[in-house]
Simulated assay, not measured.
Amino acid sequence: MIVTGYKATRARKLTPGEKQANRVLAAAHAPVGHGFAHLKTWRILTKLRTDPTRAPPDLLRALPVLSNLELSR
């Protein structure tokens, strides 16, 4: 399931509830994004950028674990 935020248009502004939902979603996405940024700076994901099928199975199992650890901090 993919959860996306609300988007305002020129004709329709966001309601306070939609703004709050976007803030909650952003707060949940930020730690995961920061975790992947750290992995990229450590050069762990360099091979995945070119061909995800070349990723070692250990790395693929470790990524969700690291993401969950980052979320729990």
Score class of each variant (00 low, 15 high):
32 V>I: 11
20 Q>H: 11
13 K>T: 09
21 A>R: 06
55 A>T: 10
40 K>F: 11
23 R>Y: 03
20 Q>R: 14
17 G>K: 12
64 P>E: 09
48 L>C: 08
48 L>K: 05
19 K>A: 08
50 T>A: 15
20 Q>M: 08
28 A>I: 08
51 D>Q: 10
35 G>Q: 14
30 A>V: 07
62 A>S: 13
34 H>T: 12
67 S>P: 00
28 A>D: 14
47 K>I: 04
64 P>R: 08
36 F>T: 00
15 T>D: 07
50 T>W: 12
44 I>N: 01
66 L>F: 13
58 D>V: 08
3 V>Y: 07
73 R>Y: 13
26 A>P: 00
44 I>V: 15
71 L>R: 15
24 V>T: 14
59 L>E: 04
16 P>N: 11
10 R>W: 11
5 G>A: 06
69 L>T: 09
6 Y>V: 01
9 T>D: 02
38 H>Y: 06
69 L>P: 00
39 L>G: 01
52 P>M: 05
17 G>E: 15
1 M>F: 10
44 I>R: 13
21 A>W: 01
45 L>I: 03
59 L>A: 09
38 H>F: 03
29 H>D: 09
15 T>C: 03
53 T>R: 14
48 L>A: 14
25 L>Y: 03
58 D>L: 10
13 K>A: 15
60 L>C: 05
47 K>W: 02
13 K>I: 00
11 A>Q: 13
69 L>Y: 14
60 L>R: 09
40 K>S: 12
35 G>S: 12
58 D>T: 11
13 K>H: 09
38 H>V: 12
17 G>M: 06
4 T>I: 01
52 P>C: 04
48 L>W: 09
39 L>H: 02
32 V>M: 04
40 K>M: 13
39 L>F: 03
20 Q>C: 01
59 L>N: 02
51 D>I: 04
65 V>K: 10
4 T>C: 00
63 L>P: 00
37 A>C: 04
65 V>Y: 14
66 L>R: 05
8 A>M: 08
71 L>G: 03
39 L>N: 02
4 T>M: 03
33 G>P: 00
